[in-house]
Design a protein around this nucleic acid. Structure first.
Lengths: 222, 222
DNA sequence: GATCGAAGAATCGTTGAACAATTCGACAAT
DNA sequence: ATTGTCGAATTGTTCAACGATTCTTCGATC
């Protein structure tokens, strides 16, 4: 038996803390629609369900609150975030800022290839008529666009924005997918990017985001 | 007298929780340079110093970590964030994305007036040769630009970015202020904004951010 | 004398229990 | 119908404890 860790690289394995795993589980349930907007999250209940202490649940809540997935009401409890007036516009304002800026900056060949890969992923999902996979592919596409900028901070911001969108537009977007024109649109955006026509790629992306916002606004009457 | 609460808005008083106040205090000390990058923050020590429990300190840490002001190293402790390679570029990438996008969208007369007010604030600080006030005014200027977009989310993102910049460039920016050209630059940007020349305002702002990044890069040898 | 390893101290991660403060719901009184 | 009161439920916070991990010290070995 090896007395010390010879040979194998000394990797920081960093097992996620319990609080982190609780947050992860809740994020999953939020994205999957098991916890709907407005639902109350009682500390004691969740602590018992997941077999952890209340304090740990509390830490997880703090994390989710910082991501705007839940809202803390002092002395009242934690609730799954609900769509307030202006939130849709707000989310798309953030997306326009960081996605358009990212695509206008271009990116390395690898990053561009990742965008292309997301486009293909969408096409496969469409061919397989897998609606869930379609949604994921679209998120990968936009995530890959932001990844062009190679910015840790923009990446996490985008991650949080997409998590919010999953929460709010969970199944409602099934309708939006009926208009499957965005698949070809993604392709066109990606093509412009690959051709180095960054300005045009930015315009196309902006147009997409504006239209997408309008769609969501009509679906969620506002 | 009104029988029910007619007229006055129903405000949630919401006394900040203890954890929130602890986070606020630490944020203050970080911005003020009392806690320098790399410094270790021991839970027990801070708990005792501020007269709160370790668990409460923990919650405050979680909040600060989500803002990237401190870094958690599992089982090792919490440290004031340090400037890693690429962080300066990263921060300016975020600023370029949200500031330029915001100014290009223009804003209401009130919001534009707020930008102008920040410019004037800077001029007064310069006249009074108050270096601290100069730094604050500059931050208010850029905060006001993002506020043009009227987006909660962009506002908090910008708040976090500025907090990071205060942490890293606390006193080092005193040098950068020697080149006081940015005062007139802010004025020019604001003028373009007021004149509705949004495209040009965006260009000016972008140029400023690029130059500012380079300055910081040279100051913090990289 | 430098390297290695093992015992011990310090700190973190997490738990469980406790208690005051606040909110909520029901029920009675005006 | 509004107000007031009481009790139950939940949150905010503290405290004490313990295993696990990291850091430090200090010998032992080569």
């Amino acid at each position: 038996m090896a007395p010390t860790q010879t040979g194998s690289a000394r990797v920081r394995v960093a097992v996620p803390s319990v609080a982190e795993r609780v947050a992860e589980e809740l994020r999953y349930q939020l994205a999957e629609g098991m916890l709907l907007p407005g639902a109350r999250l009682t500390e004691a209940t969740i602590a018992e369900d997941l077999g952890v202490s209340r304090n740990t649940v509390r830490e997880a809540f703090a994390e989710l609150a910082s991501e705007r997935l839940v809202v803390r009401q002092p002395n009242r409890g934690v609730f799954v975030a609900t769509l307030e007036a202006g939130d849709i516009h707000d989310l798309y304002t953030v997306r326009r800022a960081i996605e358009v800026s990212s695509i206008r900056g271009g990116g390395s060949a690898e990053r561009v290839a990742a965008v292309r890969a997301a486009v293909d992923e969408g096409k496969r999902a469409a061919a397989a008529e897998d609606n869930d996979a379609l949604g994921s592919a679209n998120q990968h596409f936009h995530g890959a666009i932001v990844a062009l900028a190679e910015s840790k901070r923009l990446d996490t911001i985008m991650k949080h924005v997409l998590a919010e969108m999953r929460l709010y537009f969970h199944k409602a977007t099934a309708d939006a997918h009926f208009y499957s024109g965005w698949l070809e649109e993604n392709d066109a955006i990606c093509a412009a990017l690959e051709a180095g026509e960054l300005e045009r790629a930015g315009e196309l992306l902006l147009a997409y985001l504006n239209r997408s916002e309008e769609q969501q606004l009509t679906v969620h009457g506002e």
